[in-house]
C-alpha cells in the first residue's frame, strides 16, 4: 500500500500543477458521472413513490442523456451508463444501460449476454467499479485495467453509487481510455524537471514520463516505502522519490523514483 503526503505540503510548483491538472480532468469526468447518477435517481423516484418494483422501463429516458454525454465528452469519455444491482428490477435479474463510442463515430448501447446459462461474464458484481461504490458508498477510480467486459480497451473507470429511497440500486460510471487520459495529462507531466509517474493506490502506473516505468507496470513497494519514513517530500531535484496525493482523486504523483 502507498502512504501519501497531503497535497501541497512541499513547495513544488510543477508537481502541484500536475496534481491540479489530474484533479481538474478527472473531477470533470466525475461531474458527468454525477449527472448520470442524478438522472437515474430521478427516473427511479416514481417507482418508489408508487411503492412498486423498479423495471427497465423506468430508465427508458436514460439513453438520451448518455448519448449527450458521449457527444460532449468525446476526447475523454468513451463509455457511460448505469449498472443495476442484481435482483433489484422487477422484470430482469440483471441489467445495465451502457453506451459507448463506436469506431465509426456513432454511439452504441453495449449488448452483453447476461444469461449465466450461456455467458461466463454475466456476473458483473466482482468488478472493482461495482464493489467499491457498493461497499463504501463513495467514489471509485478503477484501473488501469483491460476492460474485457465492454470495450477490450485499457481503461480507467470512474464510478459513483446510485441510491433510491435510501437503498443502493446500482452504480453510475464512465470509462476513460488510458490513451485519452495520457493525452490530457501529459502536457503537465512533461513540464516537470525530471521523469515522473502517476500511480494508483496499488502502485500501478497510470501515466508516466519515465520510460523505465510505463503505464501498467507496478512500482514495487521498496522505493515507495522509503517515502513513508520521510516527514515531507524532498525538494525538487533532491535525492530520493517523493509521493504526492491528488486530493480526492486516488492517484499519486511519484517523482525522483530510481
Amino acid at each position: 500500500m502507498v502512504t501519501t503526503h497531503p497535497t501541497g505540503s512541499p513547495a513544488r510548483t510543477g508537481a502541484s500543477d500536475v496534481i491540479d491538472e489530474v484533479s481538474r480532468i478527472l473531477e470533470g469526468v466525475f461531474q458527468e458521472v454525477a449527472r448520470t447518477r442524478d438522472r437515474c435517481e430521478q427516473l427511479a423516484a416514481p417507482a418508489d413513490a408508487e411503492d412498486r418494483d423498479l423495471t427497465t422501463a423506468d430508465f427508458a429516458a436514460l439513453p438520451e442523456l448518455l448519448r449527450q454525454q458521449l457527444a460532449s465528452g468525446r476526447d475523454l469519455i468513451s463509455g457511460v451508463g448505469f449498472i443495476a444491482e442484481p435482483g433489484l428490477l422487477g422484470d430482469v435479474p440483471v441489467w445495465l444501460d451502457w453506451w459507448q463510442n463506436a469506431p465509426d463515430g456513432s454511439f452504441r448501447p453495449l449488448q452483453l449476454d447476461l444469461d449465466p446459462n450461456t455467458s461466463a461474464y454475466s456476473d458483473y458484481t466482482h468488478w472493482e467499479w461495482f464493489t467499491v461504490p457498493r461497499a463504501t458508498g463513495g467514489r471509485a477510480v478503477s484501473g488501469p485495467y483491460v476492460d474485457y467486459l465492454c470495450s477490450d480497451e485499457y481503461s480507467l473507470t470512474l464510478a459513483l453509487p446510485v441510491y433510491s429511497a435510501g437503498r443502493f440500486i446500482g452504480v453510475a460510471a464512465a470509462d476513460v481510455y488510458l490513451r485519452h487520459f495520457e493525452n490530457a495529462v501529459m502536457p503537465a507531466l512533461q513540464q516537470l524537471p525530471g521523469p515522473a509517474c502517476l500511480v494508483n493506490t496499488r502502485g500501478r502506473v497510470v501515466a508516466s514520463t519515465d520510460p523505465r516505468h510505463l503505464a501498467g507496470s507496478l512500482l514495487k513497494d521498496p522505493p515507495l516505502g522509503e517515502t513513508r519514513s520521510s516527514a515531507a517530500a524532498p525538494a525538487p531535484g533532491g535525492p530520493g522519490p517523493s509521493l504526492l496525493s491528488c486530493g480526492e482523486i486516488p492517484l499519486h504523483l511519484v517523482t525522483g523514483h530510481a
Binding site: 485495467y145 483491460v146 477490450d152 480497451e153 485499457y154 500501478r204 501498467g216 507496470s217
Partner: peptide, 11 residues
Amino acid sequence: AAAAQSARLTR
C-alpha cells in the same frame, strides 16, 4: 491476459 495489463493479448 488482462492481468498482463495487455489489451492486445486480451483481444
